[in-house]
Design a protein around this nucleic acid. Structure first.
Lengths: 170, 170
DNA sequence: CTCGAAATGTAGCGACCGCTACACAAACAA
DNA sequence: TTGTTTGTGTAGCGGTCGCTACATTTCGAG
C-alpha cells in the first residue's frame, strides 16, 4: 500500500515547479488577478494548463505557493528602497510612499491591495497570505526602527498601508 | 425617427429602479462581489436577471448606481458612529477603528476594501467609485476637525484607512 | 531490452458568466 | 377599438472557469 498520489518531488520536477512558480508570480505582479485563469497562467509559463495542475494539484495551492514565494522576497525588495540599517518613522513612511509610484514597486503593491480585497471575505488562500504578508511587513519595519521605538511598529504599519493605498488610488 | 432605446424613466419604473438598487446594495454589503453575478443579484431582489438588465442596461451601470447610492449614505453612517460636531484627530481614528469590527460596519468596510482591490488595476466602475468614496470620506473628516486642523484631513484619512484595514485583516 | 513510472497532449465536462432574441401580455393613447 | 409603448417569461448563445478522463509518449532502473 504505497498510497502515493502526489506528483512526486523528484528533484528534477522540483526545479520545474520552481521555474513555474517564478513565472506565475511574475504574471500575477504584472497582470493582477483579473486575467489570471489557469489557462493564462500556463500560457505565460510556456506550458499547458493540464501540466500546471499536474505539478500543483489545485489552483488554490498554486497561488498559495506563488504568493508565498513572492512575499518571501519582499523584504529584500523593501531593503532596496530603504537600504540603511536604521531609519526614523518619518523616513520609513516617506521612502515607501515615494517608491509606491515607481514602475518597480507599483504593480507589486497593487497586487498586495488586490489580495487584501480578496481576503476581506475570508477566502483562501488570500486570507492566510495577507496575514503572513502583514507580519512580514511589520517585522521589517520593526527591524529598521531603533530598539526603543519598536513598539510603534504596528502603528507605523497602519500608517504606511493607508498612505500607500491612498497614493495608489489617486 | 424617435430613436428611443432607453428603458424610460417613467416615474413608475423610476421607483422600481430605486427598490432594486436598495436590494442590490444590500446584497453587495452582505455578500461582497464574489457571489454577485446578475442571477444572484436578481434573485435577492425578487426578480429575474432578465428584468435586472431591462432596468439597468449593463451590469457595470447597475453596480455603478448601486455603489453610488451606498456611498451617498455613508456620511450618515459615519455620523452615527461619531455624532458630535467636532472631534480631535485621535478621537476620529479611535471611533472609526472601534466601529470597524461591529456587525453594522464591518461588512460595509469589507466591501470598501474589495472595491479598492478591484480599483487597483483601473477597472470601471470601481476606479471611479473608489475615487468618489475617498473624497467623500476625506470631506467628512475635514468637517469634523476644527477649521485650523482641516489641512491635516488627507493625512488623517490615510491613517484611518490603514488602521481599519489592518484591524479587519486580523 | 523490458517494464513500470513519470510526463504530456487532446478533448471535454459541468458550472457559471453577462447578455440577448423572441414571443407574448398588460397598460395606455388615439 | 386599434395600435404603440412598456413590462415580463422562456430559453439559449457564446464565452470562461477549474478540473479531469483517457490515451500516449518519454525515460530511467533492472
Amino acid at each position: 500500500m504505497t498510497l502515493s498520489k502526489q506528483p512526486l518531488p523528484s528533484a528534477k520536477s522540483a526545479q520545474k515547479r520552481q521555474t513555474i512558480l517564478l513565472s506565475v508570480a511574475g504574471h500575477l505582479v504584472s497582470q493582477g488577478f483579473s486575467n489570471s485563469g489557469i489557462r493564462a497562467l500556463a500560457k505565460s509559463a510556456g506550458i499547458s494548463d493540464r501540466m500546471l495542475l499536474y505539478y500543483f494539484e489545485t489552483k488554490e495551492a498554486l497561488l498559495h505557493e506563488a504568493l508565498s514565494l513572492l512575499f518571501n522576497d519582499f523584504s529584500s525588495h523593501l531593503d532596496t528602497i530603504l537600504p540603511q540599517a536604521r531609519a526614523s518613522s518619518t523616513e520609513i513612511v516617506a521612502a515607501l510612499v515615494a517608491s509606491s509610484t515607481t514602475d518597480a514597486s507599483r504593480p507589486m503593491l497593487a497586487l498586495w491591495f488586490e489580495i487584501v480585497g480578496l481576503a476581506m471575505r475570508g477566502d483562501e488562500p488570500f486570507k492566510t497570505t495577507a496575514a503572513q504578508f502583514l507580519d512580514e511587513w511589520e517585522r521589517w519595519i520593526a527591524n529598521k526602527l531603533a530598539p526603543a521605538q519598536r513598539h510603534r511598529a504596528g502603528e507605523l504599519l497602519a500608517q504606511v498601508e493607508g498612505s500607500v493605498m491612498v497614493t495608489l488610488l489617486r
